[in-house]
Amino acid sequence: MRYESPATTKEAVALLSKEKGPAFVIAGGTDLLVRMKSGLVEPALLVDVKRIPAMTTIKVMQTGFRVGAAVSGAELGAHKALGKAWPGVVEATNLIGSDQIQGRCTMVGNLCNASPAADSVPALIAAGAKAAIVGKQGRRTAAVEKIITGPGSTSLAKGEVIEALTLPKSSRRTGDAYLRFTPRTEMDIAVVGVGISMTLERGIIKKARVCLGAVAPTPILVPAAADTIIGTKLDDAALAALAAACSDACDPIDDKRGTAAYRIRVAGVLARRVATIAFQRAGGAA
């Protein structure tokens, strides 16, 4: 196995494009090294992106935030402005693994690992995050919900890497939240995850995005669920409708971590709780 740690994204793309064998990007490595240890993958090339400046920084811009692909969960959690603007995204990312894992894991790694149960992804999708992608043909941008195509697979072409994720500017009237259900308090994989962001206007939900994790082959954006709360003050009827719409949208399986029936039930329960937090964060009156 060859290990390279280029200084620019362009070099990284060139290395990955040229390699004939299995080639992987290593950022935090918290998923990749586990898969290597178990023999699931045997890379011919690893490209370490942690020495690429564009990937290791969080930039605050006019239009929002740009989070480099190699920024760790711990660094994300320490960024005050980002935490204030998108607390749901930061909390979701900080739920991944332990403090030890947080020292390494990244949102882009979580995204590209393409697990249906990835914690940061539903929050990112709910927040309307976009991926800045660099490939041999140049740069492109894609909504985060367009990246994961199935368990373990993404829409990235060979040689393409995500350099950063961008999050839109958040207003005082915008709130987001993410909750997951796990049997343990920590060190666990989501049985169900729900990310919701919403923007209020005069106390009424004007815009909303609802994304569910671990209830389908990919995290799913559920416009029908968002519709149940748009135009409401998140009253009990809206919450009940939201829960029902989320449960309806689930297409889960039975596996070692949970049953389909449980996931369907708890998706609705969590959606209510998440929406309530996001609503409060957006300045909504309980």
Binding site: R184, T185, E186, M187, D188, I189, K256, R257
Partner: peptide
């Protein structure tokens, strides 16, 4: 599993109590 194989041979999915539990 149905195939008689152990599905959770690791500390991630064999959930012993952690400190915060």
């Amino acid at each position: 599993g149905e195939d008689g194989r152990l599905q959770n041979p690791g500390f991630l999915d064999y959930r012993i109590p952690v400190c915060s539990d």
